Computed example of a mutant assay.
Amino acid sequence: MIRPALSLVGLLAALTVVPAASAAGNSDYSVLIISRERLEVATTCEIGVYLNDQLSGRVFQEQSTSFNLPPGPVDIRLRLLPGQAPGCNPGLENQHNQRLTLQAGQINKYRIAMDHSGLHLTRASLDY
């Protein structure tokens, strides 16, 4: 009886030494979610997401991607990528960037849309 009691006390003492994992508190990154869930872009081609001029993600129809980024400004460019589907050669495109300023601990959701000037991001609600 004494041995199990000592084992229990030792286990409880060990648990107090190990810090608990927590998602709360000050976070030093921002979450950026880019979705293509709506059918606003009338193409089956995949869309490349370039962060600071580096291909960082690919988004197909009805998908989304997310990034954990440091706070501060980030330049985002969207572009059609050549792929498996016929007719997905990008050709000449408007190569404009959108600059977003991210705050630490913030979750930002944008959806991909298209207009006469090409692909761009529009703010979306989180809807959780």
Rank of each mutant, 00 (worst) to 15 (best):
P73H: 09
Q103D: 11
G25F: 01
Y110C: 07
F67L: 05
I76D: 15
N68C: 03
E62N: 05
Q54D: 11
P19L: 04
L92R: 08
R38S: 06
L12T: 08
N26H: 02
P73M: 14
N108D: 13
G72D: 06
V59T: 11
L39S: 06
Q84P: 10
E37P: 00
Q103R: 13
R123T: 00
V17A: 13
N52A: 10
L102H: 15
S64N: 10
T16K: 02
S125V: 11
L92K: 09
E37K: 05
I33W: 01
Q63N: 07
N89A: 11
T65L: 07
S117Y: 14
Y29Q: 07
Y110Q: 12
V59A: 07
L39T: 09
P70D: 04
R77Y: 11
D75N: 14
V18A: 06
G48D: 08
L80N: 11
A13S: 08
D53R: 08
A85P: 00
A20E: 12
N108H: 07
N97F: 11
R77K: 15
G10P: 00
R36D: 13
S117L: 14
A42V: 15
C45K: 03
I112S: 02
G87R: 00
N94L: 12
S56K: 13
G83I: 14
I107Y: 01
L78V: 03
P71N: 07
S66A: 14
P73Y: 05
S35H: 05
V9K: 00
L92H: 09
S27F: 04
L78A: 12
L32S: 13
R79H: 06
L32P: 02
H116V: 04
L102C: 11
F60M: 13
P86N: 12
S117G: 09
H120W: 01
R38M: 07
Q63A: 12
A124P: 07
E62R: 04
A13E: 03
G91T: 07
T122Y: 01
S7A: 14
L78G: 13
A113Q: 12
R77W: 06
L80D: 03
L11R: 01
F67Y: 15
A113F: 04
Q106M: 15
I76R: 12
V17F: 01
D53N: 15
D28S: 13
G10N: 12
C88N: 07
T43F: 05
G91W: 05
